[in-house]
Write a protein that binds this DNA or RNA. Structure first.
Lengths: 408, 408
DNA sequence: ATTAATTTTGTGGATTTCCACAAAATCATG
DNA sequence: CATGATTTTGTGGAAATCCACAAAATTAAT
């Protein structure tokens, strides 16, 4: 009765059997669109399938199209086979697809290419049986993977916390754990609005496994945070690549799964794996600073872009020791208190806007001349020369530092 | 024969005796123009003398006049009495003055006011005898002072190196050593071109004791450096007061004694005596930074004015750890090397001149449009927004820091 | 040596900034 | 609440900055 009720030695054998029964090419993917097995009978194959087999994963643009078309959401919501119309822009022919379920979780997909004739009810029924049969085969894979996962997680945390001191040791360890090694990497942290629940983890895993903007050899989740190692393809536009990845990850989490990612940040890009710890700390610094200076650092994602805020932790420490007290700032604060004025706010905004009078006036909703007058007063009261870069830098840092101190 | 060849219980008694013999008011000062004794017979007294007695020191403007008139140089060069013409601007009447010598050192001065009749040869002779007699009396004072000096020196070094942790302990110690206590103080360091020789020490002592711009309760000399505690009169213009003192000290050392003081600097002004250590470190930092950034910090004397350079030591340390590597700066350096251009110099000068195109162009001897072009290139190559204060600050600091690192 | 790319300098005009002055509004204080 | 001091806003013109374009000079690379 059921043509798949026998033992299969491998998934490949299974794929071939399904292909034989249904008389069409078959591809089996895991939940992250990685290729698990494919049939090898001689049949017509569309370009999307060829690419998938060569790369051992579904090309990202194909995945994106399938999301846009609503195919994947449908597959994730029920276990019925569906017909997928050709999407010629990405080389996808007419297909039939079905998801493979274990309890309420999707383990993977079976794709069949629809040949000349449209499918009969019987064929659909057979495919459903195949999906059921695939479940057990896939489960074994899952379990194997799961055990390995834990060791990998531990390894990643060791990397993040600077447990290893030799690059070569790390590389060797990667080989043992079968973690791919890349020449450049940077630590990325995403902060989620809600604590990350197990079902969200699957969606994160999905996005990370499917993205092709960069490789994500390692990631870990705890509480609100997703921390991952990102390996950009080239060194040339590495920064830009990671930035793009951040943007699209946040957008996709939101669009596809309605999961809000509050913030994302990444550290410098290093070649040596021992620097992962540093990159991790940098990424954390970026997040901390963004929290303290959301207004100033709204568009900042990388440690490089943090600019002077890079050394705020360090400076705050010294400031706490009572070092660099700023006479100018104190005088301005004093004046503000005594006359409930807002010279500090004024100078801060002025410096925020690169000493541009008009922009600053607009930002403060005051007449440019008013600003000019205030600046004259600031120069007098604070005994500062507003055309002296050194003095301005010191004041700017001290103003921001005072805010930072207040927020800590 | 010699009317002074008896024992005197005190210098006051001596002064009265001289006054009696010469029939005129007598004032005795030490080498630093501090009042040591004065006669109390009823005689006419000029305003300068009154002021001297009230303040227990010769008013600074009087000292300055006497220097300008060449009186004091003459007194310091030989032991003959000289006639000093009236200087009415400073309330000085006609005087006769003589210096008191021990070996080749001047211990002090005797001043006599010339009454109606001009002095006879005999009177001059008597004054010379008085000066000789004063020597022994003054010597006792010197010796007493000298022993105390050593303990005071040690105490000062303890203050500078943070040996005490309680303000009250320090104050008490000051009382024991008879060191006056002031509400505000700051550590000042002068760097001399030549190593400071013993005879120069006397001249330093002289200047410090006679200055009235501020009090100098403690000072110490080693090698090229004079380190002192400066107590400004009021808190209001304390900074300005100390700055004026620095300027005039350096000028006077040069004008009066032809001694070159290369540099002077001072730390923050603190109320608590335990902060003297900090002020000392700050003053040292100022000197160090001025050496490294002579071009940028030519006019800087105080820690406050150091601005962002205040935290360069700290930053350099971190930089050495490989933290904050600046992508922009590296790219510009790279470009400079590859094309022997001078983008780094250009941006540095630009920022030095507060982002003013015209000034910068002038400083670099290039056409303003050339500068504009270079800035456009810098923005492109360094991927920096030259209207973003944060980025500019970071770059500015990194440029200067790179220089600092190179110089260390 | 030639060519292409890059850099420097020049010109003119639109725009913005800077300043001085004055009037109006607001604030502080007795 | 009256008064003077301080702050805000308005106006107009001189000065500067910015920008686009083009020519000249320099440099790099074949």
């Amino acid at each position: 009765m059921n043509p798949f009720a026998t033992h299969f030695d491998s998934l490949e054998e299974f794929a071939d059997r399904v292909s034989e029964v249904l008389q069409c090419p078959i591809t089996i993917e895991d939940a992250n669109h990685r290729l698990i097995a494919y049939s090898t009978h001689e049949h017509y194959t569309d370009p999307a399938r060829t690419a998938t087999i060569i790369n051992r994963r579904v090309p990202e643009k194909v995945i994106n199209s399938l999301w846009r078309e609503g195919v994947i959401p449908k597959l994730l919501s029920n276990s019925e086979p569906i017909r997928v119309e050709m999407i010629s822009e990405v080389g996808l022919g007419n297909r039939i697809a079905i998801s493979i379920w274990k309890n309420k979780e999707v383990l993977g997909f079976i794709w069949a290419i629809e040949m000349e004739q449209t499918w009969t009810e019987e064929q659909f029924e057979l495919l459903k049986q195949a999906a059921k049969a695939a479940k057990n085969l896939l489960l074994q894979l899952q379990i194997r993977k799961h055990k390995k996962e834990e060791r990998i997680q531990e390894f990643f945390w060791k990397l993040l916390t600077g447990h290893f001191s030799s690059h070569n040791d790390i590389i060797q360890q990667c080989h043992v754990l079968n973690i791919p090694v890349y020449p450049f990497s940077s630590v990325v942290i995403f902060h989620f609005k809600q604590e990350i629940q197990p079902q969200v983890e699957r969606q994160i895993d999905y996005l990370l496994k499917t993205t092709q903007q960069l490789a994500v050899p390692l990631y870990t989740i705890d509480h609100h945070r997703l921390t991952l190692l990102a390996a950009p393809k080239s060194n040339a536009n590495a920064q830009a690549d990671i930035k793009r990845f951040l943007r699209s990850f946040i957008a996709q989490m939101n669009e596809r799964f309605r999961i809000e990612v509050t913030d994302g940040a990444f550290g410098s890009i290093y070649e040596c794996y021992t620097k992962i710890e540093k990159s991790y700390k940098e990424a954390q610094t970026v997040l901390n600073m963004k929290r303290a200076f959301s207004h100033d650092l709204g568009n900042v994602q990388s440690y490089q872009e943090l600019g002077m805020y890079q050394f705020f932790d360090l400076l705050l420490e010294k400031k706490r020791d009572g070092d660099f007290y700023n006479e100018t700032l104190e005088k301005l604060k004093q004046y503000d208190n005594r006359h409930h004025a807002s010279l500090v706010k004024t100078i801060e905004t002025f410096l925020d806007h690169d000493s541009n009078v008009n922009e600053t006036a607009k930002a403060l909703n005051i007449h440019p001349n008013t600003l000019a007058y205030r600046l004259k007063r600031i120069a007098e009261i604070g005994e500062i020369d507003l055309h002296d870069m050194n003095q301005k830098v010191k004041l700017y840092i001290d103003v921001k530092l005072a805010k930072y101190e207040a927020s800590h």
